[in-house]
């Protein structure tokens, strides 16, 4: 599951592209650190095994968001457009 490369958000006339590709190294570093640290951090009522699966599950969830598209257009021309590439 590859995380999204680009997320674009357009609210009314404001267009915000978020190049997630540039954040991939940071995401990889966070994944490695979380994978090492989380099993040893106490999170209520979870087993170390479950905690070890959490970082990868988070990345998979991000990857599953690819292709998400939300377009809401109101009658007065305002609207919200969210795309995940």
């Amino acid at each position: 599951m590859i995380p999204p490369v680009l997320v674009t958000v357009k609210v009314n006339r404001v267009f915000i592209p978020v190049p997630l590709l540039l954040l991939w190294p940071l995401l990889a570093a966070a994944l490695v650190i979380a994978q090492v640290v989380l099993p040893f951090v106490r999170v209520a009522h979870t087993t170390p095994g479950q905690r070890a699966l959490m970082p990868l599950a988070a990345v998979r969830l991000l990857g599953a968001l690819r292709g998400l598209r939300v377009d809401v257009d109101a009658h007065d021309g305002t609207g919200v457009h969210i795309r995940c590439w």
Partner: peptide
């Protein structure tokens, strides 16, 4: 008040 909603959700979710 016309509204158009178009949503595409990946089934991988």
């Amino acid at each position: 008040e016309a509204v158009k909603v178009n949503i595409r959700v990946p089934l991988a979710l």
